[in-house]
């Protein structure tokens, strides 16, 4: 009787330990799950990577609709840069490919590297904001005293919901720490 009981105990214990490990793994699985949830719902205003030019061939411009796009910028602590949109405000038609950009300068005495992170409000519009070219696709290194114009080519997908009339785009430059 005790031996049989011990065997049952061991079996159940092993099952429970496996369940614990499973939930530990689930904790890590939440990272990609959360990211896809964000992409789907536009939570945090995250947008995707570059769109290929071929993908937009034949896209129609919806001349009847106008969407106001505001651009803002931020430089996070650790970078000494000045960073501003070229055009703080513009009005675009859904489907129209638009070129704009940001200007950045580094008044400090040393080169610094940063990564721009984009965010959009309202979040619902994020998945319709498509970029063909963006300085945010890679890190930027700005030399001491350098002044640079950075290009952003984007369009707003014509599928964007009707009630989206105004969106705001933010780019924040984060310092990239070089591992020494």
């Amino acid at each position: 009787m005790p031996a049989a009981g011990a065997g049952r105990n061991r079996r159940l214990t092993i099952i429970l330990v496996i369940v614990v490990l499973g939930f530990f793994g689930f904790g890590f699985a939440l990272v990609p799950l959360y990211n896809s949830f964000c992409k789907l719902t536009g939570l945090n205003g995250k947008t995707g990577g570059p769109v290929k030019a071929s993908a937009v061939a034949g896209m129609k411009v919806d001349g009847a609709r106008e969407i106001k796009v505001g651009f803002t910028s931020a430089v996070m602590p650790g970078l000494n840069w000045k960073f501003k949109p070229l055009h703080p405000d513009m009005v675009v038609h859904p489907g129209a490919i638009t070129t704009t950009g940001y200007v950045v300068s580094n008044p400090s005495d040393h080169a610094e590297t940063g990564q721009a992170i984009m965010s959009i409000v309202p979040g619902r519009a994020a998945r319709y904001f498509k970029k063909l070219e963006c300085f945010c696709f890679h890190q930027e290194t700005i030399k001491a005293g350098e002044f640079r114009k950075m290009k952003l080519v984007f369009f707003i997908s014509p599928k964007v919901p009707k009630d989206v009339r105004s969106i705001i785009v933010s780019y924040s430059f984060f310092p990239v720490k070089k591992r020494s």
Binding site: F23, G25, F28
Partner: peptide, 22 residues
């Protein structure tokens, strides 16, 4: 406890990695 403590431990591990392993 079995369902929710392991994800916290996973989160704490990520936090530790963010703090020390870049």
């Amino acid at each position: 406890l079995i369902a929710v403590f392991p994800p916290l431990v996973a989160g704490a591990t990520m936090l530790f990695a963010d703090r020390h392993f870049g």
